[in-house]
Amino acid sequence: MKNYWQGGVCLAFADEVLCWLYGTVKENEDYILQFVPPFHRLELLRAESCPDAITDHVEQI
């Protein structure tokens, strides 16, 4: 599959996702961003707390 990946399309999608997150996420609240495979969409879910995997990773940094 030659020329399947297009950098401009990828960056435009990333820009849309980041703008959506910036306008949706509230400060001092925890969220989980997940990809839903059968529907090919992103979902932003409110979380009770930050997932341990993220907390552990941040502590390592």
Rank of each mutant, 00 (worst) to 15 (best):
Met1Gly: 15
Met1Leu: 12
Met1Phe: 05
Lys2Arg: 10
Lys2Tyr: 05
Tyr4Ile: 15
Tyr4Gln: 14
Trp5Met: 11
Trp5Asn: 09
Gln6Phe: 10
Gln6His: 13
Gln6Ala: 04
Gly8Leu: 00
Val9Gly: 03
Val9Cys: 06
Val9Glu: 15
Val9Phe: 09
Cys10Pro: 00
Cys10His: 11
Cys10Trp: 10
Leu11Val: 03
Leu11His: 06
Ala12Gln: 14
Ala12Asp: 15
Ala12Gly: 09
Ala12His: 11
Phe13Ala: 13
Phe13Asn: 08
Asp15Lys: 15
Val17Pro: 02
Val17Gly: 01
Leu18Gly: 01
Cys19Asn: 11
Cys19Ala: 15
Trp20Pro: 03
Trp20Ser: 12
Leu21Met: 10
Tyr22Val: 01
Thr24Tyr: 01
Lys26His: 08
Lys26Asn: 07
Lys26Asp: 05
Glu27Lys: 05
Asn28Pro: 01
Glu29Gln: 12
Tyr31Ala: 05
Ile32Leu: 08
Ile32Arg: 11
Ile32Phe: 03
Gln34Tyr: 11
Gln34Gly: 03
Gln34Val: 08
Phe35Thr: 05
Pro37Gln: 06
Pro38Trp: 06
Phe39His: 14
Phe39Ser: 14
Arg41Ala: 09
Leu42Ser: 03
Leu44Asn: 01
Arg46Thr: 04
Arg46Glu: 09
Glu48Asn: 12
Ser49Glu: 15
Pro51Gly: 03
Pro51His: 01
Pro51Asp: 02
Asp52Arg: 09
Asp52Met: 06
Ile54Leu: 15
Thr55Asp: 05
Asp56Ser: 08
Asp56Phe: 06
His57Ala: 13
His57Phe: 14
Val58Thr: 02
Val58Cys: 05
Glu59Ile: 11
Gln60Pro: 01
Gln60Arg: 13
Ile61Lys: 12
Ile61Thr: 10
Ile61Asn: 10
